[in-house]
Simulated scan of single mutants.
Amino acid sequence: MAAVRICGDTHGGLSRRPRPHIRLPSPHLQGSVWAMTELWVLGPDNWSAWRALRLTALAEAPYAFGSTLAEWQGDGDREERWRARLGMRGSHNVIAVLEGRPVGMASGVPAEEPDTAELISMWVGPRARGRGVGDRLIGEIERWAHQRHARKLMLSVMPDNPAALALYERHGFTATDKLGDLLPDGERRELVLAKTLAYDADSLTSRQASRQARPSPTA
């Protein structure tokens, strides 16, 4: 699968132009369209681009993730593992590019709960923080969740990550009573936040029709 660049407003109509591989323009093109934040959707064939950014994220912000850098190094750093990560069924894996350089990432995956999607692997590099990159990434995962007709978008966040909490709260996420994963100290847990996704009347009618048209699992 080729990488796909998302063009335009993440909340409106999108045009998608396939690319045979990730090849980013020179960062000196500051005065062109590349000076804006772009989002690229990655598939298994783009595993090396995802790997580079994910390892950078785990090294730069170990406090922000349940996974550790050590788990993805050594024997854990295998091409087939990275391909499997990007090939997760139903996943939507996005990197943000600012001024020609990858600076952030996020994924949307189907959750275990029905009609629910989950935002995972969210990270924005230090040089891009405060520049709207996190907003673009969250907006894109929310757009993807809408396309899947999800009613709720969930995420987990570390309790001692106030910057991430503020970002998610700004986007309408609120705390739930769901227990998050236990942290290494054996006492605290990740916080689980959720946001109810809004649909207009036409979207709801289309969603209900789609659900009614699905074959019975016992058919």
Rank of each mutant, 00 (worst) to 15 (best):
G172C: 02
D202M: 08
G12V: 06
D200M: 06
G108F: 11
L191A: 06
A145T: 09
P217R: 12
G180H: 15
C7L: 13
L98D: 10
A96G: 05
G100T: 01
L58T: 09
L69W: 02
L39R: 06
S15C: 03
M105R: 12
L42G: 02
P102G: 01
D135S: 05
A52F: 04
R214Y: 11
P162N: 11
T56M: 13
A57P: 10
G180Q: 15
R127D: 12
R51G: 14
D115N: 04
W40F: 11
M158F: 11
L39G: 10
S156G: 08
D177R: 13
R129K: 02
R16I: 05
R211I: 12
V109D: 00
A194V: 08
R16D: 00
M158H: 09
E71M: 13
E112C: 07
P114T: 08
T116F: 09
Q208V: 13
A150V: 13
L197M: 00
P27Y: 04
A213D: 12
I6N: 00
E71G: 13
L204A: 00
T56A: 10
A198C: 07
P62H: 02
V124D: 04
E99M: 10
D181C: 08
E113C: 06
P44K: 04
C7V: 15
L167D: 00
Q30P: 03
G108D: 03
D45I: 09
P110Q: 01
F65Y: 00
I22K: 09
A150H: 07
M122T: 13
D202A: 14
G74W: 03
V41R: 03
M154T: 14
T205G: 01
G12Q: 01
Y168F: 12
A106D: 07
P102Y: 02
V4P: 03
A64D: 08
A163D: 07
Q147T: 06
A175Y: 05
E118P: 09
L165T: 12
W82G: 08
E142P: 00
G139I: 12
G180A: 14
A145E: 00
R54M: 05
R81P: 09
G172L: 06
I141D: 00
L53M: 14
L155A: 13
D181Q: 07
P27S: 08
M88L: 13
S206H: 10
R170F: 04
L86C: 07
G66F: 07
I22P: 08
R131G: 15
T37C: 15
V124K: 14
D160N: 11
G100H: 01
E118G: 13
D177M: 12
L204Q: 01
A57W: 02
P184F: 01
S48F: 10
Q212T: 15
P215Q: 13
A3Y: 05
A209V: 15
H28R: 06
G104S: 11
G139Q: 05
R89Q: 03
F65Q: 01
L86T: 10
R170G: 13
P215A: 14
A52I: 07
R127P: 10
A150M: 11
M36R: 15
